[in-house]
Design a protein around this nucleic acid. Sequence first.
DNA 1: ATGGTGGAGATTCCA
Length: 268
Amino acid sequence: MPFTLATWNINSVRLRMPLVERLLAERAPDVLCLQETKCPDDLFPFDAFRGLGYQHIAIFGQKGYHGVATVSRRPLEVVEKRRFCGIEDSRHLSVRVSAGGRSILLHNFYVPAGGDEPDPEINWKFRHKLDFVAEMNAVRAEQDDFSSSILVGDLNIAPLEHDVWSHKQLLKIVSHTPVETESFEAMRKAGEWVDLMRLNVPYEQKLYTWWSYRAQDWQASDRGRRLDHVWSSANLVPPFAGYEILREARGWERPSDHVPVIARFDLD
DNA sequence: ATGGTGGAGATTCCA
């Protein structure tokens, strides 16, 4: 019985509840982390999740924008709903969950997109994104003999050259500018996080989790980016048993522009 | 070089 975890930027949990139900029915991950729920807490679709066996629900929403949720078949303990950069945005939620006799601290993040102009002097959204990533330096991959950490979410940065369809053409596009990718990798290393999606994958292999709504034919042009990530503490690398990017979900009816990533650990 | 699409909720911002 492995421990399975999915992360998905759902772009409105209420509008896309039929797709969430499809994912949970078909794949039944133990835990699902959602971003961009765009749903105030009192309007969250609790009953739909409970009806599918996801009795344990932690949410940190807000009206109209952002918002994260972590739903689980296993008991959850809410650890923190942290606001970054002194801004009243709902972009982080951490919980504890047990698997294989160990306690896992699970961070669910929605990093700011950063706007269009990659200049922090004239675009406050880009300044905010850089500040947000800098503040994430404090989030470390805590681990000991009995505990581990996982960090997932829409981090809105594609750090490596083969995490985008054209490295050269995206160097000045927000999500792949050097100032972002360098601070992102520095932050990941400072926290001692392992990028599980790249662990056993050749460097040259393209990996995407997001395809723009603006493409005429997302599948034909295939101009994707890896904006969604699964990180863990080093002591989860031995039980890590692979993952899947659910590319097909981009072709579902009224899809999100992000697809789910499902990771498996041989823990329990 | 430009604009393309989609969601929320209010007639525009955000991604």
